[in-house]
Write a protein that binds this DNA or RNA. Sequence first.
DNA 1: CCGACCTTCAATGTATACGAAATAGGAGAA
DNA 2: TTCTCCTATTTCGTATACATTGAAGGTCGG
Lengths: 242, 242
Amino acid sequence: MTIVSEGMRAGEFAYRALLEEIQSGSLAAGTVLAEVEQAERLGVSRTPLREALRRLAADGLVEQASPRVTVVAGIDAGDIRDLFALRRALEETTARAAATSADRTGFAAFAERFAEAAEALDDDEGRSRYYALIARFDEALDAAVGNDYLTAALRTVRTHLVRVRRMARDKPARLVASAGEHRLIAEAIGSGDGDLAAHATHVHLHNALASILDSLAAADPEAPDDTRTTPGMPPFGKKARA
Amino acid sequence: MTIVSEGMRAGEFAYRALLEEIQSGSLAAGTVLAEVEQAERLGVSRTPLREALRRLAADGLVEQASPRVTVVAGIDAGDIRDLFALRRALEETTARAAATSADRTGFAAFAERFAEAAEALDDDEGRSRYYALIARFDEALDAAVGNDYLTAALRTVRTHLVRVRRMARDKPARLVASAGEHRLIAEAIGSGDGDLAAHATHVHLHNALASILDSLAAADPEAPDDTRTTPGMPPFGKKARA
DNA sequence: CCGACCTTCAATGTATACGAAATAGGAGAA
DNA sequence: TTCTCCTATTTCGTATACATTGAAGGTCGG
């Protein structure tokens, strides 16, 4: 996708490369990430590669299957539900806070853009612009709320979300509905209605989750809807809690 | 305090040592953490120390003041408010989820223990047992909810919270009230009343935040207590005198 | 034939050497 | 005296060599 090798530290390069591969699915869940192997593959030494693995572990994208072997973390429908439970908590709080922030006025413009975007979701270019609009909207929310702790927590959620979205591509009808939901959220924030912003966010995330789970169930007909969705992978220990 | 050097990797040792020193205030906000200096002081080499610094940076406890210098992150009243905004979102969600979980029955016992603890907050030992009880309560909540994403986000919050608590010691009267609030939360969860659990959590965190900010205002009379945000410049350690 | 122990190997954990880049200090010129 | 430029030092970023540990396979004994 993007050339990220020039003018970047090797550790950062390794992190972004592995992140992209995990998010895109090039590195499937359960893949063993050995230090020497990955270091040679990416053309960096073990030191920066170790840094990258540690960062991915902190993000929750890789986990230590045993004290000596690191694997790409799996994601199943239950994980996605859990992720959305956290996402609801964070984004409802964000929406409510943004609605009462000083610079909430700019969100009326976002509402208009979402309305426009909803009309242009027929081609890839329109969809691409819509996703870019959502990214700018998220940035504007973070900036309006100005809470670094909240933003950091949301960053982790969004990182996992990229992976989930690639597992379950949105259907066109869902995209149109999603754009409408975003429009309402932006309107509510712009008009200072925190309750509406929070509740509209809740509804939006409910619908988004339902769409994703539905898409996964359709792709994996035999899997009951609370099992893992990464076929072929042996059950790596995920639930390490005692 | 605790000897953590035996049977532990050097990177883990360095992380815990620096974490404890930052949380306790031994390393004040704004302190420059140079790699060679800290590595020699802790008796490890630069490689594991770098790992520790990266982990602390991911936690938000240290930050890069410039591309070449890492410093202990500052915390002001605005940061504490932001931290509690996130904490409210996470703990209300946790309490509500725990109230509907299968193994919520054990929480009635917690309610009793909180009631007992409230009666024994006169001496250090009773207070110590109360804090330990809260820790077990948090663990039970995490286990009941069973959401690793939520637990991970809460872990970060709790890490910062240790620091905040050390900055603003609880007063005895507040502790008694806090125990009562915890008792109500535990009761609500035990009886399956998710709304009450969430609202009682909200009230508890409101009171806890007010107590902390009040304590800080008393210690730092000249610091205005409406430092809600720090626009433009990152917060730097300014709590040097007392 | 089976099991346990030992050896060997491979992978991670750690230390250190090397290289690059930024900053601070000094010297020279205006 | 002051500003600018150059140099030297310090610090981080990276690579690699060394240490350690866990696992796997083979062999020997029962």
